[in-house]
């Protein structure tokens, strides 16, 4: 029964932290907002350095290698950019072609490269509560497996 209450208490704390319920801890806590821009910019040029102005580009997402995810045309400097869908982790393939010349590049995009916005991490009280839950859970688990069997 004791272990059960430990678990319930821990779950409640995890829910409070996880759901981001407002916990007011410090009157003058600082908050930093951030935005990660996952824009990928590419520049296509010929071997002699001349930009591939107006070249066709095709972007393939890792979940569908046959169907273009995005198509378009490079600008006068051979540039184009796109924001990949980070819910599709893996290798994104980008092909650029013009007048019989072309190339393909492969860009790995991981799930952790999330394009998002938010605030500057957890508050101090959230970190303390999470650490406490982790330690409490670890100790509880260790005690459970080390208990003696009844004769």
């Amino acid at each position: 029964m004791h272990t059960k209450w430990k678990l319930i208490t821990c779950l409640i704390l995890v829910l409070i932290v996880g759901l981001g319920l407002p916990i007011t801890a410090f009157a003058h806590g600082a908050k930093i907002k951030y935005t990660v821009d996952m824009t990928i910019e590419l520049v296509a040029a010929y071997d002699n350095g001349e930009p591939m102005a107006g070249a066709q580009f095709t972007v393939y997402a890792p979940d569908d290698l046959f169907t273009p995810w995005l198509t378009g045309v490079c600008d006068d400097e051979g540039r184009f950019s796109f924001v990949p869908d980070t819910s599709k982790p893996g290798t994104w393939d980008i092909q650029v072609r013009q007048a019989g010349h072309g190339d393909i590049v492969h860009i790995p995009i991981g799930e952790d490269m999330v394009a998002t916005s938010g605030t500057g991490g957890y508050t101090a009280i959230q970190i303390i509560l999470m650490a406490a839950c982790f330690i409490w859970g670890s100790v509880g688990t260790a005690l459970y497996f080390s208990r003696r069997r009844r004769a």
Partner: peptide, 12 residues
């Protein structure tokens, strides 16, 4: 050579 570059992707 790397992957084919053209109208369609090849080798799948």
């Amino acid at each position: 050579c790397g992957e084919y570059v053209g109208d369609k992707r090849k080798g799948m």
